[in-house]
């Protein structure tokens, strides 16, 4: 697979390090923004056109966007080992922190002050999720039918306790059929 970046492909060590730094500094979601400024602007490993192309794949497939992007960019730059190292670099800092958080929680999770903190950030997290949903919705809900599909999915899962795979496959199949290619 040919490289479209404006700089030569990095060494594996350098690739891991750049993804590790992005994985450690991209606080508050929006990893895609960090990825673009890191990969396209600063390192010049990719041009904007390839970045958008890889992003489209990442967002279409299941999986976390940032992890998918790391795999695709790593593969494009340095093949299979590049994909593995980029994904590891991206995930390790956050995963290490969250592992440490679990141990800290075991020690101080019952402390009333930390409980007050945790309960309040949970409310904040609901606000964040709603914002993420509105942004995602603005991007993908293009017609009335799309809103219906989204509403039915949410009602099935949150209202009727239908397991996610059934809702995903059931509503997903109808929605894909609804948008099926017509004519040629």
């Amino acid at each position: 697979m040919s490289t479209t970046g404006t700089s030569p492909p990095p060494s594996l060590g350098r690739l891991f390090w750049v993804f590790f730094v992005m994985g450690a500094t991209s606080i508050g979601g929006g990893v895609v923004g960090y990825l673009r400024s890191g990969l396209v602007v600063r390192q010049r490993w990719l041009d904007d056109a390839s970045f958008v192309e890889l992003l489209a794949i990442s967002q279409t497939l299941p999986g976390l966007n940032a992890t998918n992007m790391s795999i695709l960019v790593g593969d494009r730059l340095r093949g299979t080992p590049g994909a593995i190292l980029a994904a590891l670099g991206m995930c390790l800092p956050g995963a290490a922190l969250m592992t440490a958080a679990a141990f800290a929680y075991g020690v101080g999770g019952d402390d009333p002050v930390s409980r007050a903190f945790l309960r309040a950030i949970a409310a904040g997290a609901v606000g964040l999720i709603l914002m993420v949903m509105v942004q995602l919705g603005a991007k993908v809900l293009a017609g009335f039918a799309d809103y219906v599909f989204a509403g039915i999915t949410a009602a099935l899962v949150a209202g009727f306790g239908v397991p996610v795979p059934y809702a995903l496959i059931g509503v997903g199949a109808v929605a894909i059929w609804w948008h099926r290619p017509r004519g040629t």
């Binding site: 999720i129 993908v140 039918a145 799309d146 809702a167 997903g172």
Partner: peptide, 29 residues
């Protein structure tokens, strides 16, 4: 030709799943 259909169809389901997640999280939080 099916790629945009899949992208759009799954897109609306994804929004519904995020909303369901938000509702379930909200009930607890």
């Amino acid at each position: 030709p099916w790629r945009p259909a899949i992208q759009r169809g799954l897109g609306s389901v994804a929004v519904g799943l995020v909303l369901a997640g938000a509702i379930i999280l909200g009930r607890g939080a």
